[in-house]
Simulated assay, not measured.
Amino acid sequence: MTDATGSAILRIDADTNIDGTATPSGTFTVIGLASQFDSAPFDGGYQVLPRSLADIIGAGAPALSASPSSIDFGTVTVGGSAIATVTMTNVSALPLTLTPPFTITGTAASQYSAGVPAATTLAAGAATTVQVAFAPTTSGAKNATLNITSNSGSAVIALTGAGAPPGGGSSAGIVISDFRMRGPNAGNDEFIELYNPGAAPVAIGGYKVSGSNNAGTVSVRATITAGKIIPPHGHYLLRWRIRPTPPASPTTAVSR
């Protein structure tokens, strides 16, 4: 090891967990015990002894890898939300520490949020995940960047999505794939099947089905309970019974 004033030897003690591992390459940081073993005039023989793999930081190429490198949330109705997952992997032979909170930058940074990773310390080859949410407050294209940081490198994820006005007929790309009104059992045999054609999960809690009676009075027939999510290319079957009062909740709601 050489700095502006001289050099020192990086020595590895045989009773540490460093012994036998790959030799670090490139620029890295070492925490260790410094000593000098030369004789007079004592102007050489300097050495640094790290105590464990954790004392060798940022060796070689960046240790952090994140995927996917970009996320397209599609179109989400203003007031709604969509969620995606990012996987972070330690691709080095040394431990890595993530340093949340992760920042989101860009013109539409306020439309996105990042959660807390499931783990912050990753052993060599280990991985963890973090969820990213898109919740537009206005319509139009929304672009931003998620910045993932660690003590050994960083990664950026491009975030894209679009907000749609409420009542525009589309919520995060959710479509009605099938429905039945007044089946063989009349009002007790009706359903709507929703489909998510996108590549990201879509939260559908709070969605409502409204209808009118013979007098033209419109009321809520069913409400999807909070926390329900349709996975990418997944379906959600909503069935209900019609009752005069109060508006009915779903009798059967199956995600498949």
Score class of each variant (00 low, 15 high):
S81P: 07
G45S: 06
A59E: 02
A108L: 05
V30W: 08
A133G: 10
S7Q: 15
T27E: 14
S150D: 05
K208M: 08
S81T: 08
P201W: 00
P165K: 03
N17K: 05
L10A: 11
T85P: 00
A34Q: 12
G74H: 02
I174M: 11
Y46P: 07
F37E: 14
T77I: 09
L94S: 10
R180A: 11
T137C: 11
V175M: 10
T128E: 00
L159Q: 01
K228G: 11
I104G: 03
H235R: 14
M88P: 02
Y207N: 14
N188L: 10
G79T: 00
R256A: 13
L96V: 01
G198V: 04
G74A: 03
S110K: 07
L146A: 06
P166Q: 12
L53E: 10
G211W: 05
T121K: 14
S81W: 03
V30A: 11
S154D: 02
S65I: 03
P68F: 00
L94I: 02
A164R: 05
M88L: 08
P41D: 12
N188I: 03
G60A: 07
G44H: 15
I71T: 10
G125R: 01
G173E: 07
T245M: 01
T149K: 07
G44Y: 15
Q36V: 01
M1E: 15
A162Q: 03
S139D: 09
G167L: 02
I31P: 11
F28L: 12
G140A: 06
R241Y: 13
G74S: 03
V86C: 09
T87E: 08
A253S: 13
Y236W: 13
M181T: 10
V130T: 05
G153P: 04
L122A: 09
R243L: 11
Y112Q: 04
V30P: 09
G206P: 06
S219D: 06
S92W: 01
L237H: 14
T251R: 15
P41A: 11
A118W: 01
P136A: 11
W240Y: 10
T75L: 13
S81N: 12
G234I: 00
T87S: 12
P95M: 05
P197N: 04
I230T: 12
G169V: 01
D15P: 14
A144S: 05
P95C: 02
N17A: 06
S39Y: 12
I157F: 00
A253R: 09
A253Y: 05
A199F: 06
Y112E: 06
L159P: 00
V209F: 09
I229S: 13
A253N: 09
A109N: 07
T145R: 06
I174K: 11
V78C: 14
A133T: 12
A226L: 10
